[in-house]
Structure formats: C-alpha cells, structure tokens
Design a protein around this nucleic acid. Structure first.
Lengths: 216, 216
DNA sequence: TTATTTAAACAGACAGGTCAGTATGGCATT
DNA sequence: AATGCCATACTGACCTGTCTGTTTAAATAA
C-alpha cells in the first residue's frame, strides 16, 4: 500500500558500465548525477542539501553514500561529468568547421547555443569556486576545467598560426569568461555574439602583429 | 578575570555619523561591516556564519541583530558599502586622467591595482550572486552594482564620441568581467593589463566605424 | 528446474553538529 | 532615565552522515 514515486516497471537493472540502448531504468548512481546536475547547477552546491538530491533522484540516502561516500565527492563527480560533456560537445561541434579561423571563432558559436538555453546560470566551475571553502578538494576539478579551457584556445591559436598563441589564448579565455558573466548577471543573451565579434577584432590584430614580426 | 579579546582601551565611542580623525573606537555597526567585508568577501556569504562575524568584530550577537535585524540585511549592507567605496575610488582615480580616451582605458588601470592586492577573490557581486538562493533580496544590490558598471562605461563611451556608446559599453563590461574571472580563477595578475590592451583595440575599431558612418 | 548466494538498492530512524535568531540580564556613558 | 553595547544561554530548524533491516534481481550451485 506504499505510494511509490518511482517508475512502476523496474523490469531490469542497468549495470554501471553497461549501456543498453533500451529505455531501461538508470542506476542509482546515474540518477544521482542527473539530479545533481539540475539542482547543484541551478541552485548552488551549498544551498541544496543531500535530502533534496536523493528526493529528486528517487534514491535512498544509503545508496548515495554507497556510491559516493560523501557530499563533497558527489559534487566533484557532478563537476567532472559536466566537464566531460562540455569537452565532448565542443569537440563534436568544432569538427564541423573547416578552417582554423572558423574553428577558433566557432567556440563562441557553440557558446551562443549554450547561453540561449533558458536555465543558463553562468560557468558551473566559476560558480562552484565561489561557494567552496578554502582547501576543498573540489577546487582540483575546477582547476582541471580551467586548464582544459586554456589548452583548447591555445591549440586553436596555434592552428591559425599566430605569433604568440598563449597570449591570444589568454585573451580569448578572458572573452569567454566575460561572456558567461554578462549572460549570467545581465541576462544578456547576445553576450556570446558580442564576444565573437570582439574575438574577430582581436584575432585580426594578432595576425597583423604576426606579419609585422615576420618582417614581411 | 575574564579574558577579553577586545581592545583594552575603550575610552570613547564613535557615533555612527561622526568621523573623528583620532584613533577612536568604532561603533558596533562599523566593526560589524568591517568584519563582514573581510569574511564574506574572502570566504563567501554562506560558508561564514554569524558567530564568526561577531567574533571578528568583537561584538555581541544581540548588537548585530539590533543593528541589522537579520543576516540577509547584513549581507546587503556589506555589498552596498562595498559598492559605495568602489564608486568613490573609481571617481577619484578617473579624475586624474585628462582625455576621455585615457579615462575610459583608465578603468582598467584602476582594476590592475585592485587585482594586485593579495586578497583579490573576484567581483564580490558575481560571487554573491552565485551563492544566494533564488528570490533573495540580495540580488537587488547586485543588480544596482551591475547597472552602475554599465552606466560608468556608457558615460565614458559617450565622452569619447563613439557612434554606438551602449554597444561599446557592453563590450567593455564584458572585458571587465572577463579580467576579474581570469584573475580569480587562474591567479592571472596581468588580466587587467590584457583587458586594457584588448579595450584599446576594440575602441580603435569602434572609432573607425564611427568615422565610416559619419561619411568622412 | 529449483535453491542458494550475492549485491545493489530500498525505507526510515537517529545521532551529532551547525546555524540563525531570541531572550535575559548587566554595564557604562550621556 | 535612556541608549548603546555586552555576555551568554537557549530554541528550533536544518544538514551531513550512520545504522538497521528489507526488497529485488541476477548469478551460481544443486
């Protein structure tokens, strides 16, 4: 006579590493991560308690601590998963562009799609950094995300053949961060387009400087 | 026989509106705001509890609730005070520049000084926004700070006589935000200088476009 | 096939701590 | 007498994490 909110057809279980194409029930771990994505990102990692996460996931509290061991580890897993999907999406979308120049500017086109989503709340790693207390192990995941962002732009800057690729990369990261903050704080939906336009100008200046230093 | 951590020479009190040049003791309200500045900004408004604030301020808990009524009001006062000092400092520093162009770029020079401070942790309002829960009255203070930032750059953009001042202002705000995030997340001390260099390029492009549209 | 083991996930209560906010009473200056 | 401030105990809510015991389903053995 218990009123269960869970799906009423738990015919089979999905092993952690298995990935069956059928619409089978997700494992507790996967449901927890999905719930964490929504709640932690949209409301903050400190304001959302464990109880709300397990309620959203439809999972017992004991299962959470079996899977992750602590809230902090759940947060780290949430951020790590977010970074993985970010990398995969960027890789897939950038592959569509042909020229190095289009690929570099394409990062801001991808960003424009993200900002257009109604639940955009700014960069998850910047937000998390603002919430953690000093010495938290969560910072490591944030640092890795930042390193990836820099390496992404550095690689693209080298492809376009600019004289100082790390310098250009730092500038593009700055534009990327600025767009995310403007979108978050000012509901400025055109922030990515503005950043793209600026990136074009900056890139042109960097290319011009490259020709100068080459002497021809 | 009580071991007091407070100053041992509370000879006189400083009224709220008085500003005596002597090293007189500050009022409870002022000490609370000073403590809030340090703790809330450096460690976050959620991670720092009331008890730590009153301990740092050397103030009784009852005094805090006499002065502010709630933690949320203390947070709002902390942010409002921060915004006031930010405006005053910017006004004073920008007054030193002579030409409109120097004043506009001078914002990033002022910023460079801020980033150089060892305890810089990014924009207090962006950080606070990441911590508050939806519907908090703290957001109003953050919105006002954002509005000021936009009006600051819009005014400077009009002074330099560009064709689309609000467009340029949005771009400069984006650079400002990007520099603050880069400094916060990557310990990039040169972020303000990078933003200034980019602002120069963007400004030049905007001026060029202005001449074009003017037809001469 | 049937029985047994194994493991993941379930429900829910409880402990221990923290936090915001209140209440009481006392002290000092004006 | 009034005001501003101090010290401290207390309440109730919330939050993380633990513990106990049960259910379910797949894997394995008889």
């Amino acid at each position: 006579m218990k009123n269960r909110t869970r799906s009423s057809s738990p015919k089979s279980r999905v092993a952690q590493s298995a990935a069956l194409p059928g619409a089978e029930r997700l494992s507790a771990r996967e449901r927890l991560l999905a719930a964490a994505q929504e709640l932690f990102y949209e409301e903050g990692i400190n304001t959302v308690g464990i109880d709300r996460v397990i309620e959203r996931a439809g999972v017992a509290k004991a299962s959470l601590y079996d899977c992750f061991g602590s809230k902090e580890e759940l947060i780290r897993s949430y951020l790590a998963a977010r970074q993985e999907t970010r990398e995969a999406r960027m890789r897939a979308e950038l592959a569509k562009f042909k020229s190095p120049r289009e690929r570099l500017l394409g990062v801001f086109d991808v960003m424009a799609k993200l900002l257009a989503e109604s639940n955009y709340r700014g960069c998850a790693f910047v937000r998390a950094s603002a919430e953690i207390r000093t010495g938290s192990s969560v910072k490591t995941v944030c640092d890795e995300a930042r390193a990836w962002l820099h390496s992404l732009f550095t690689g693209l800057a080298k492809e376009v053949g600019v004289a100082q690729p790390t310098r250009l990369a730092k500038q593009l990261v700055l534009l990327y961060d600025g767009a995310s903050v403007s979108a978050q704080m000012d509901q400025n939906r055109g922030a990515a387009a503005a950043a793209r336009a600026m990136a074009e100008v900056i890139l042109e200046a960097a290319m011009a400087a490259t020709v100068m230093t080459q002497g021809k």
